[in-house]
Amino acid sequence: MKTSGDMGKNRTGVRMSPKEAKAMEEAAANIHPPPGDESKIAEVRESYHARAIPVGSVPPPGSVKGMAKAAASAVTGKKASVLLDKMGERMAFERTGVRLYEALITKLASAGEVDSIGLTEEALRKIQDDELRHMQIVAEAIEEMGADPTAETPCADVAGVQAKGILQVLTDPRTTLAQGLSAILTAELVDNASWEMLVDLARDFGNDEAANAFEDARRQEEEHVRLVRGWLEALTRQESLGAPAHAPPPA
C-alpha cells in the first residue's frame, strides 16, 4: 500500500541548502520594506467588505403552497428562507459527499481493502448510500415547503467552495488512502455538526416531520465519523509501527 511518511529527497526546507538560505536570510534582514505593516492589507479588505454584496439570494418559493408557508412562518416572526438556505446547503453537501465517497472507493480499489479493520468497498458503499438517502430526504423536505430543490442557495454555494480542497485531495491519484480518509473526515465532522443544527432549526420552525427525518440522518452521520476516524487512526498506526491495523472500537 502507498504510504506518505517515507523518507525521501524532499527539497523544500532551508536545511537542504544551508549556505544559500543563510545568504538569503542575511539579505532579507537588510532590506527596506515598504512602510507600515499588515494592517494596511486589513484596511483594503475592510473597504471591500463595506461595499460587498452577498454571493446571492434564496429564490422565492415559486408555488402557492410555498407562498402560504412562507407567510405562515412570517406571522411567527421567522424567515422561512433561512431554513431553506440551510436545507439547500445540506442537500448540496450530501450530493457532493456521494462523489467524494466515489473518489475514496477508487482510491481503496488501488490500495486494496483492509479487512482487518473493516475498511472495505462494501463499508464505503454503505456510507455512500446513506449520503444519497440524506440528499433525497432534504430534497423532499424542501419540496414539502413548496420550494425548489434544484436551486443552489447561498449557503449551498459556499459549502461547495469549502469542499473544493477535499475534492482535490480525494481525486489526486498521488494521495494515499489515509490522506483520502483524512479529507473525508474533515467533511464528515462538519456534516455532523451541520445536521445537528439543522435538526434544531427545523424544530424551531415547528417542522417536526422534517426534524425527525433529519434526526435519523444525523445519527447515521455520527456513525460515519466514528468509522472514518477509526480507519484513519488504524492506518496511521499501521504505517508508523508496521503493525497490523486494529478494528475501530464497537459502537
Partner: peptide
C-alpha cells in the same frame, strides 16, 4: 506596496 508593508522574508 500595501501587500508588502513591513514584509521581510
Amino acid at each position: 506596496e500595501t501587500v508588502a508593508a513591513g514584509y521581510r522574508w
